[in-house]
Amino acid sequence: MSNLRELLKKELSKSRPARYSMDDRKWIDDVADKIDPNKADLEIKHVVRDYIRTIAKEVEGKATRAGNQLMREFFQEEALPFNWQQMVNEPIALENMSIVDGQIKLLKERVRLRDATPRDFELWAQTEDRARQRDYEARGEAVSGAMQIAQRMRRAGTLTFWQWAESQEARPAA
C-alpha cells in the first residue's frame, strides 16, 4: 500500500500549484484521476481495503470530536445539550498511565461517553491541556521560524524562498 502513497506523494509534489486556495481540491482530484492502478503495480483489493480503513478512521475521528463538542457545549450552557442521548456511544480520547510489565506506560485510550468515569473526564482534560500547550509551543516556534526566514530573505534581497534557500545566507555557519 505504501506504493500508492509514495506514488501520490510524488505526483502531488510535481503538480502542486505555486499558490492555491485551501478550498481548491480540483488539482488534487486531477492528479488522483491520472493514477492507473494497473500501471501503478497496485492490487485493487489492497487499495479498496486501505480506502475503507481510512474512511473508518475518519468516521471514528469525527465521533471523537462529537464527544469533545459535548463538553464544550456543557461548558457554554452549563447543562447537557438537548441531543446528549445521541452522543452516549461517542468516544473521548485521553491519555492514561498504567503499569505494563512492571513499567509505567502512557496509554492512549478512547472511552465511550456512556462508560466514562469522573477520572476519565479529568484525564481527558489533562490530555487536552497538554495538547493545547504542545500546539501553542509548536505554533509559536513555527511563527518565529517564519518571521526569521522572512527577515533573512529581505536582508538577502531575495524574492522567493527558493532563491534564498539556495544562497549562502540560508546555510548554517560552519
Rank of each mutant, 00 (worst) to 15 (best):
N96S: 15
E128F: 02
I99V: 14
M153D: 03
V111Q: 00
K108N: 10
M147H: 07
E141N: 05
E109P: 03
I149H: 08
V100N: 13
D129P: 07
V100L: 10
G157Q: 01
A146F: 04
R154I: 05
A93S: 14
G145L: 08
L94D: 00
T127M: 03
P91Y: 01
G145T: 11
M87W: 02
A142Q: 14
E109C: 10
Q86K: 07
A142M: 08
K105V: 15
L123Y: 05
R132I: 03
W124A: 02
Q133T: 14
N96R: 08
R134H: 13
A146V: 09
L159M: 10
M87P: 02
Q151C: 09
N96H: 12
T158A: 07
G140D: 05
G145W: 04
R112W: 04
R114K: 12
R155T: 15
Q151M: 13
Q151E: 15
W124S: 02
K108E: 11
L113F: 00
E122I: 15
R134V: 12
R152T: 08
T117S: 13
D120E: 01
V88T: 07
G140H: 03
G140E: 02
G157W: 00
A131Q: 09
R114D: 13
A156C: 01
R112D: 06
R154V: 03
Q148Y: 08
V143P: 06
M87Y: 06
R119E: 15
E128R: 11
K105N: 15
R134D: 14
R119V: 14
G145S: 06
N96F: 05
A156I: 01
R119Y: 10
D129L: 13
T158R: 09
S98R: 15
A150S: 11
Q85L: 12
L107V: 00
T117P: 09
G102V: 07
V100C: 09
E122Q: 14
S144Q: 12
R114E: 12
N89M: 14
V88H: 00
V143N: 10
L106C: 09
S144F: 10
Q85W: 03
L107P: 02
Q148G: 10
V100K: 12
I104R: 08
Y136Q: 04
R112L: 11
K105I: 13
R134Q: 11
T127N: 02
I149E: 08
A125N: 04
L94C: 08
M97F: 15
L113E: 00
M153S: 04
G102E: 06
A142P: 01
Q126A: 08
D115N: 09
N89I: 13
N96M: 09
I99S: 03
T127W: 03
L106N: 11
E122C: 10
L106Q: 08
A93Q: 12
Q151W: 13
L94K: 01
I92L: 01
M147C: 05
V143M: 07
R154G: 12
Q126S: 06
T158G: 04
A125L: 10
D101K: 05
